[in-house]
Design a protein around this nucleic acid. Structure first.
Lengths: 220, 220
DNA sequence: GGATTTTATTTGGCATGCCAAATAAAATGT
DNA sequence: ACATTTTATTTGGCATGCCAAATAAAATCC
């Protein structure tokens, strides 16, 4: 098949972009292997190919940096992913918590034109069903200042924007307690011992663990 | 990638279904290789895998037959292909002539549920933009009413679909006068005495005997 | 019937992506 | 500084799908 050639390239670039955005630790072979759940040998091999293709640059300290070309490809893939997610939720009535896997497949469809038409068909949405912004057709991303719920101030109200975790179990949990992008969340109290939070969502009081609070991103 | 495993299987099954529908000549290795534009060695290899997977049956005379399982998979792939074509034309404003390649990609998206939702979203269309019927979710294809050429109306144009006779002499004759599936045929006149027909194919006038006309199946 | 052409099959090879296990290099602990 | 752990890399191997070229078998021609 000529379609779907270099199928994994987009996944590597997306993962690299995600890691570089988090900038928590340096992005090396191991970190990337962990993110993609692949063998380090596999990742090293592929990273060298990506280097040959001028998608990444291997630094002397072994960290992996996206080139401008790689970054753009990553962002266009993220654009495709998020637009397909909007399609699945808005048009096919999927729940926002169940579209990720399908979008993983759909994002690999090769056609700039198709994704631009899809964008228009969906009414040029600014963000996907998880609240993450959709890059424009040139790969430009308008970032919003996101705050982990863990670090918010007591007594204030925030708007849920997106999440720092994609595990199904996490998304299912959010869905169950009705936490989703664009919903308002008021911070009542913080338990200093275990860093858990008491919040109010839809007029219902809710207790969120530190682990959950760390992965919910809000804006003021 | 776990997605898109056995990616080519669906293409082989589709091609086999297409060839078996035409039933012009026996479906063997060479015919399939020609249809898929692949090396016969490649096709033989894959056909054996499909046989292991119980998708096809290899007959003693070397012809390749779809099993019930293979036929169903082929029809469900055709269903996906045609529904995506409807989507591209109806929703994204593509011309019907430019959607085939995109649908070739989209048809490989793995999700029964997705395609059924797409079907509903499109309003359960009966046929694709090319006029070909869309199989239902069980893989059942409502065949277009086939009419023996003998019984058509004068003055109208029909599309050749298949043949009710498999004798080599008959097929050789068809080949000689350029009658093949999908070709347009216009009915000019009928000789009431011997029930023979005067038709136009490729702008050339042709005289067909009753015996021949009985065995050519067309659709409006 | 023997020669030629066509069809069928085998063989060896290639590219993409993946892994496990072995080894080498670097970082970290004591 | 030495030992241990972590990280990086190499090696050999596997599965999917593809090809060209060689060979074997079958069909067709004369």
């Amino acid at each position: 098949m000529s379609h779907f050639a270099h199928l994994s390239e987009e996944n590597y670039l997306k993962a690299l972009f995600k890691l570089s955005s988090k900038q928590v630790k340096k992005v090396n072979n191991i970190a990337l292997a962990k993110e993609l759940d692949l063998n380090p040998a596999t990742v090293l091999e592929m990273v060298r190919k990506l280097s040959d293709r001028k998608m990444v640059q291997l630094m002397p300290d072994k960290t992996i940096h996206l080139t401008e070309k790689g970054r753009k490809k990553a962002l266009l893939t993220i654009r495709k992913h998020r637009l397909w997610e909007v399609f699945l939720v808005d048009k096919l009535n999927y729940q926002w918590s169940e579209v990720h896997e399908l979008a993983e497949q759909l994002e690999h469809i090769e056609s700039e034109d198709l994704v631009n038409r899809l964008d228009a068909f969906l009414g040029f949405p600014a963000s996907d069903p998880h609240g993450d912004p959709i890059p424009d057709k040139n790969g430009k991303l308008t970032q919003v200042q996101l705050i982990p719920l863990k670090e918010v101030e007591l007594g204030k109200t925030y708007i849920v924007q997106s999440f720092a975790e994609t595990a199904d179990s996490f998304l299912d949990y959010l869905s169950k307690v009705d936490i989703r992008p664009a919903i308002k969340i008021k911070i009542l109290d913080r338990n200093e011992y275990d860093q858990s939070l008491i919040v109010v969502i839809n007029k219902k009081q809710l207790h969120l663990s530190e682990k959950v609070a760390k992965n919910i991103l809000v804006k003021p």
